[in-house]
Amino acid sequence: MAENTAAAVASAEELPKAQNPTLQFIRKFLRRKTAVIGLLFIIFILIIAVIGPSITPYDPNAYDYSAILAGPSAAHIWGTDEFGRDVFSRIVAGTQLSLGTALTASVIGTVVGVVLGLIAGFFGGLVDSFIMRVCDVMFAFPGILLAIAVVAIIGPGITNVMIGVAVFTVPSFARIIRGAVLEVRGELYVEVAESIGCSPMRTMFVHIFPGTMQALIVNFTMNVGGAILSASSLSFLGFGASVTQAEWGAILSQGRNYLATAPHLVLFPGLVIFLTVLAFNLFGDGLRDTLDPKLN
Rank of each mutant, 00 (worst) to 15 (best):
A105Q: 03
F83E: 12
G197M: 09
I55V: 14
H76F: 05
I51W: 09
V36L: 14
G52V: 12
G84Y: 01
E191K: 06
I208S: 09
Y189D: 11
I144Q: 10
A120V: 13
D64Y: 00
G238T: 10
G157P: 13
A152W: 15
R90V: 07
L275Q: 04
H264N: 01
L99A: 11
P200E: 07
V224L: 07
A6N: 13
Q214V: 15
A166T: 14
T56C: 02
G226E: 00
P293M: 08
C198Q: 04
V184F: 08
D292E: 13
G226I: 00
E13Y: 10
A6R: 12
F220Q: 02
L252P: 02
I177M: 10
V92P: 05
V272W: 02
L15T: 14
L271C: 10
G270K: 07
M201E: 10
L265V: 01
F141S: 11
I217Q: 06
M132H: 05
L237I: 02
T5C: 00
D86A: 00
V134K: 02
Y65Q: 04
L234E: 03
A250R: 07
Q96D: 05
A147H: 09
D285W: 03
A93I: 05
S230D: 04
P269L: 07
I158L: 11
A62G: 01
F274M: 14
F173C: 13
L146K: 00
P200K: 01
V127S: 13
F29D: 03
P210Q: 02
A227W: 05
S242W: 05
D285K: 06
G164M: 10
A2M: 10
T203F: 04
I153G: 15
G155M: 08
L145D: 07
G155E: 07
Q245Y: 08
I163F: 14
D86N: 03
P171L: 15
T221E: 01
F83V: 05
G225N: 02
V114F: 10
F41L: 14
S232H: 01
G113W: 03
G94H: 02
A140W: 10
L23A: 12
N61T: 14
A7G: 11
V165E: 13
V266R: 00
G100W: 08
P72V: 02
F123Q: 08
Q19V: 14
P60Y: 04
L295P: 00
T80W: 06
L282Q: 13
P21Q: 05
V107A: 12
F205E: 09
E187T: 12
F83H: 13
R90F: 03
A105Y: 00
F123K: 07
I158K: 07
